[in-house]
Design a protein around this nucleic acid. Sequence first.
DNA 1: TAATGAACAATATGTTCATGG
DNA 2: CCATGAACATATTGTTCATTA
Lengths: 119, 119
Amino acid sequence: MAFMISQRAFIKLYLITMVEKHQEYGYQMLESMKGEFKSYGYVPPQSEVYRALHELVQEGILYRTKKLKGSDPRVDFQEIVLYHFTDGGADKAKLYKEQIKADLDRCLGILHKAEQDNY
Amino acid sequence: MAFMISQRAFIKLYLITMVEKHQEYGYQMLESMKGEFKSYGYVPPQSEVYRALHELVQEGILYRTKKLKGSDPRVDFQEIVLYHFTDGGADKAKLYKEQIKADLDRCLGILHKAEQDNY
DNA sequence: TAATGAACAATATGTTCATGG
DNA sequence: CCATGAACATATTGTTCATTA
């Protein structure tokens, strides 16, 4: 067992939740996380977010589609990558989240213990 | 700012506290931590404990002395390395602990937020 | 076995660069 | 600037080996 939860796993957890909420593409998820954690001095790096998305695809939880962002293709040709749950992906995701929950609890326990033991 | 506290920093925190308690040599500290965290499924690796001790020496917080473990040198020749605070080391250690405290709080906040946001 | 240390291998992460619209 | 991705460099770990008594 590792010491703390990895950043990768932590980000995947948020990505899954964001896909559940149909907040569907990478840049959006990245900016969303940046905003959420700004006050904690934690800036999730772009590379990790994309790597995490790729991993979730590798693991068969998500699949990708592409579309043009704007409604009018004459104005906005920006192609974005959307992520959705595969068949069975939602279940896998649920299982994954359960495992992460246990790990988060474990980490919270360890950190809390450290505060008790050392201060 | 990093995502989570590093294992290295976490171990150093415990080492400092153990030196404060005159639990003074490496192997002893290692075994102590192993015992403390057994129920968390976390096994602090030997290499990290020694590396952390070496770093604390490099940073001028601790210094080393050696002695034979047993009281009777005819029976027990095992040489052990004892760690003590240098002049000013205790103050540096106190400062270090304050910084780690802030980081522990920050990590607890992040993990707690993750549980609220995703479950 | 207790005790310390170093070497080596694998991962995880951070930073920078590249691309296109 | 938005959006995605890859490359590169470094830091952090985990595992194994070496040594002494």
